[in-house]
Simulated scan of single mutants.
Amino acid sequence: MDLNTTPAEDAFRADIRAWLESNLPHALRDKVLHHKRLNRDDYASWHRLLGQRGWSAAAWPPEYGGPGWNATQRHIWDDECARAGAPIVLPFGVSMVAPVLMKYGSDAQKRRYLPRILDGTDWWCQGYSEPGAGSDLASLRTRAERDGDHYVVNGQKTWTTLGQYADMMFCLVRTDGDAKKQEGISFLLIDMKTPGITVRPIITLDEDHEVNEVFFDDVKVPLDNLVGEENRGWTYAKYLLGHERTGIARVANSKREMVFLKRLALAQKKNGKPLLDDPLFAAKVASLEIDLIALEVTVLRVVANEAQGRGPGPEASLLKIKGTEIQQGLTELMFEAIGPLAAPFDVSFLESARAHSVAGDDDAAPLAAYYFNYRKTSIYGGSNEIQKNIIAQMMLGL
């Protein structure tokens, strides 16, 4: 693996940086860089803006409307977007269900859904986790039974991120109750406007409506919305999760947050000196930064493998574990650095209803909510404990 960039790659980075500086709306950048909450319009408008440039799906091949960037170019794109303060492109459509459709979907499904994912017409959500079937996903109990030209779906999904906005859900359902757990699951595409679907909010500890529980009561789904073969959904789910876990590492975002942490620690004083000069605190920051550098090198190894046509394997679990641990570590050190100043909980400021925090410190005001929200990262996408089991089995042969 060669860590040096070529002149062409340097020029590509310069072009991306210049475009972001000219086109990323300042209000949107301010929200991201200051840890404010993004709403539906924020995500949708950014997706549309990227779509006009042909960049809403950075990893897609040209035949489906993507830019055709190689793995290194996509890494540079992620790096520059994070540095500039751009919102993430929500992964559910572009990075999760779309690769499954490209590999396993019918021609009709590709023609129907991929253009609508690309231009942001359809907002997608993920129907995987259930009560009692989160990390042990194969224990899911939502059933789909054939009835003429439809499946009839009954059951419940939970922790459905941004499902309150969704037009479509990609959903794992049990279609054979007598088969082994992994062998009786199918992958369905469900229109969220179908009668019988109820979406109820779950308000998280940071008082945000980000996740939901979704109930299915005799929901009719056309047989044409089955992806691939019936009872082969576990194969498609594993393929999707490999893409999800690689993306969860979010190295570029963590690099940006490391800069923010250092700035925060320089502004705070301890015994009349910047907190970052305190040996104990500086050691914590240094240890975390070393982990982040090592994680980025690991990501670059995966990028190099992709350039040679090898997709993410168990390395995705490594990225997921360490990436989320670093994300949590950053929020912990921010909270530690700011101390009692993070205690006031100003929801109006977080939601941009007022320009400045009532507590008077705009950097400190979002940090409590930021810290609590990031407790989830070691759980979603398959808990880190489960990822360690995958590594033990697939990489160590245990």
Rank of each mutant, 00 (worst) to 15 (best):
D10G: 06
E21F: 04
E21R: 06
V32F: 05
K36N: 10
K36W: 12
D42H: 11
S45P: 02
Q52T: 07
G54M: 01
W55P: 00
G66Y: 00
N70T: 11
D79T: 12
I88R: 14
V97S: 02
D107G: 04
K110Q: 10
R112A: 10
I117L: 11
L118H: 03
G120R: 09
G127P: 02
G132S: 09
L137G: 02
R141I: 09
T142W: 00
T142E: 01
R143M: 13
A144E: 01
H150L: 08
V152Q: 03
Q156T: 13
Q156I: 14
T158G: 10
M168T: 04
C171R: 00
K181Q: 15
D191W: 02
P195E: 10
I203S: 07
L205A: 15
D218F: 05
P222T: 08
P222A: 06
G228E: 00
R232T: 01
R245L: 09
R250V: 08
K255E: 15
E257P: 04
F260A: 11
L261W: 12
R263V: 05
A265V: 06
G272K: 12
L275R: 05
K284N: 10
E289L: 13
E306Y: 07
R375H: 11
T377W: 08
S383W: 00
N384L: 07
N384C: 13
Q387P: 02
K388L: 08
I390P: 01
A392V: 06
G397L: 01
